[in-house]
Simulated assay, not measured.
Amino acid sequence: MAVTRREFMMASGALACGLALGSARAQTAAGLKKLKLGVGLKSMSPIVINLVVGEILGYNKAEGLSVTTQALGTNANVQVAVDRGDIDFGVGVPSFGLPVLSRGEWKQSVNFYEYTYPYKWDVAVLPKSDIHSYADLKGKRIGVSGFGATDYPVTRNVLQSMGFDPDKDFKWVAVGGGVPAGVALERGQIDALAYYDVGFGLIESAGLPFRLLPRPPKLPLIGGQFLETRRERMEKDKAEVIGVGRAVCKASQFILANPKAGALAFLRMYPEAAPRGSSQEQAVEAIYKAIGRRIKLYVPPYPHAKMGSINVKEFETEAAMNHWKIADYSPFYTNDLIDAINDFDPAKVRSDAMNYR
């Protein structure tokens, strides 16, 4: 799905409000460089847990940094904010960036760390639904969290790879994210819900029933998510960019070693993420369930690849599926910082995680 000029203009207009809503929770200290990281969410969610808990765990501070995370609403908003320099770092999403690259308009930004690898999306139906495969979805109403979210273009791509026409064979319905998406499915407002791993975890924690359809064979490895920044920052503040990547890499290792400790750290930063009326133990369990599917995707699915390294085949596959003609991907990403980002003692991070209280 290409992002039109009009959509980018609309995203630009939405930034002024979104940038004013940055989290005030970051524990800053004198002498730390303060940076802003944008995510394409309407409110903070454990989907980005490994991007944010480095602040409370001290990993940002160890790099001389304090990072404030801002929920900017959509991935397009984030892309515009990074390109304009309104934020220092953002979440890069190929389904929004590759069309820009194919038009020869990609100029300012570069993806330098893959913090979540493919594949994280599924399609769910009610337990008693007569839909049992992706092929059974033809003619049905498929819910997505929103048309500016990644679950929409990625699911379209998968169905298109199976020979369907995404525009003619299905009706797409925006139902919102989190529990409201599960409610829409339960109430029959949609026949199926295309959503991501952490989102399904939140729905499951709320006690709403669903059944995941079996994934089609040869599922394309697309839909990874990345840290991106302006190329100018890469050149002038290289150590700073490495520091942000290293903090995320450490946080990912921490969560992998002790997911419940990661959940507790996230709740200390964002206590409103706890289910209403829950105890701390119940809240930690809810976040743990939400991230259970996601944390496996912190590790590259490629043999001998270092955490955070980017495989260009993901971009090539997505471009081919959408008929985007791209001759050179080098302006879009770099692996030049991966060795430096991974230059820390993972055993020490794992030990910290196991002893976290």
Score class of each variant (00 low, 15 high):
Asn335Gln: 07
Tyr195Ile: 05
Val82Trp: 11
Ile255Asn: 07
Asp343Thr: 12
Ile255Trp: 00
Ala327Met: 14
Ala184Ser: 10
Ala194Thr: 02
Leu126Phe: 03
Lys140Ala: 00
Arg246Phe: 14
Gly40Cys: 06
Val158Phe: 01
Leu264Phe: 15
Val48Pro: 02
Gly176Ser: 12
Tyr329Gln: 11
Pro180Phe: 07
Asp352Phe: 07
Ala192Val: 03
Gly188Asp: 10
Gly182Ile: 04
Asp345Tyr: 15
Thr155Ile: 02
Ser351Arg: 13
Ile56Thr: 15
Tyr59Met: 06
Lys33Leu: 11
Tyr329Trp: 06
Ala124Asn: 14
Gly85Cys: 03
Arg103Ser: 09
Asp237Asn: 08
Met162His: 14
Asp83Gly: 12
Lys218Gln: 12
Met307Leu: 09
Leu208Ile: 11
Ala29Ile: 14
Glu204Val: 10
Gly201Asp: 06
Ala81His: 07
Thr155Cys: 09
Leu98Cys: 06
Ser23Phe: 10
Tyr117Lys: 07
Thr28Phe: 05
Lys33Gln: 11
Ala76Ser: 14
Ala30Pro: 07
Tyr288Ile: 01
Tyr196Glu: 10
Arg230Pro: 04
Ala124Trp: 06
Ala319His: 07
Ser109Pro: 14
Phe344Gln: 11
Tyr59Val: 05
Ile56Gly: 07
Gly148Ser: 13
Asp86Thr: 00
Ala14Pro: 08
Pro275Ile: 15
Ser129Phe: 04
Val82Thr: 15
Pro271Tyr: 15
Val53His: 04
Tyr195Ser: 12
Ile295Asn: 12
Lys306Gly: 10
Gly176Cys: 07
Gly92Arg: 01
Pro216Asn: 03
Gln280Pro: 15
Ala206Thr: 05
Tyr59His: 12
Ala181Glu: 09
Leu101Thr: 00
Tyr152Arg: 02
Ser351Trp: 06
Ala135Gly: 06
Val80Asp: 11
Gly85Met: 08
Gly146Thr: 03
Pro166Ala: 13
Ala184Leu: 08
Glu228Gly: 03
Pro153Thr: 02
Ser102Arg: 01
Val179Asn: 02
Gln253Val: 15
Pro99Lys: 14
Lys128Leu: 01
Leu19Pro: 06
Ala273His: 08
Gly148Arg: 03
Met10His: 14
Ala11Asn: 00
Tyr117Gln: 13
Ser102Trp: 05
Glu240Trp: 15
Val312Tyr: 06
His304Thr: 13
Asn50Lys: 13
Tyr288Phe: 09
Ser161Arg: 10
Leu21Ile: 10
Pro99Met: 11
Gly73Thr: 08
Lys168Arg: 09
Pro259Ile: 12
Ile338Met: 04
Ile142Ser: 05
Asp191Gln: 06
Ser129Gly: 04
Thr74Arg: 11
Arg25Leu: 01
Lys42Asn: 12
Ala20Ile: 00
Ile338Ala: 13
Asn77Lys: 08
Ala340Tyr: 15
Leu264Val: 04
Gly85Lys: 08
Gly22Lys: 04
Tyr115Ser: 01
Ile242Met: 07
Ile295Pro: 02
Ser309Val: 11
Arg231Val: 01
Met162Trp: 13
Met321Cys: 02
Asp167Cys: 06
Leu297Arg: 03
